[in-house]
Design a protein around this nucleic acid. Structure first.
Lengths: 144, 144
DNA sequence: GCTTGACCTTGTAGTGGCTTCAGGGTGTGT
DNA sequence: ACACACCCTGAAGCCACTACAAGGTCAAGC
């Protein structure tokens, strides 16, 4: 199977597949006589795994770690569970941040209810006066 | 006022101030005889505005647009309100995405409740079998 | 006058997870 | 013979910074 077919099967672009190979997430494919990459079922499974992790917004590092666990057949899945728990924590932390943000934005939005000169607009005034509180120095989530 | 003092006033780093200048968000400062940047009250206000927008997770483009509105004293604030509404939409859309993600992760997490060989782990199986549905082609949010 | 140290300057490269592009080679159908 | 879809590599771009290298400036203390 050539790269285009693989990409389509895994719902991603050809470039993404090559990128994963370069990053070491996907093992290098064999090559045909004309230097085309050639994939088998193992590659499909691996790529689907990666894409599913990405669909859950895991980072490449998290995925790399996860793949390391999965590739060790003697190991138990405790580490896998732990990683998923941590990632769930990231997602929940980010949700909390965004809910707080939403609150601030709604409050800001209510400061203006019409069409005024910008000087008189409560939103503009709010943006000038708000107190930027320094963001927590160390983030507990990698989600933007 | 020198750059370090300005940065401290606005709760950001010196590098960030120079970066905003390079990007055209903050007008270039005057220079002292020894080529140090020298800032006045207008710069403080402008930088605070920018930092407040960033604290609300607006992009540089959104901020640039907003500054354009604010700098036109003849204009009304309708465009400002609209931009804030749109941004609020981004935030809400991202919250919805992350809540869906959380649901999926919780469901996935429940598939394993102990320490099994990875082959037998419901989470690993889940990650292999999930159907990556193609993400909506065009994003309605710039938030990660 | 000399050193130390805090501050300032410019420029470049790195982050993540891709996407896009330039400049080519390969394979199939007409 | 040509078109056209697919493949290859390598480099650059995205965003909002951050970090670093290599140096200039200035006040205080010895």
């Amino acid at each position: 199977m050539k790269i285009g077919e693989l990409a389509q099967t895994a719902q991603c672009s050809v470039e993404t597949v090559r990128y994963y190979e370069k990053e070491g997430l996907l093992p290098a494919a064999e090559r045909t006589a004309s230097n085309y990459r050639s994939y088998g079922p193992a590659h499909i499974e691996r790529l689907r795994f990666i894409r599913n992790c990405r669909a859950l917004d895991m980072t490449q590092d998290e995925i790399r770690t996860l793949l390391g666990f999965v590739d060790d057949p003697a190991a138990g899945c405790g580490a896998v569970n732990h990683l998923v728990d941590e990632h769930l924590g990231h997602v929940q932390a980010r949700i909390a941040e965004l809910l707080e943000l939403e609150k601030q934005l709604v409050e800001l939005r209510h400061r203006c209810n019409g069409e005024f000169p910008v000087d008189a607009c409560g939103i503009v005034q709010g943006l000038n006066q708000m107190d930027t509180e320094p963001k927590p120095a160390h983030r507990h989530t990698h989600l933007g």
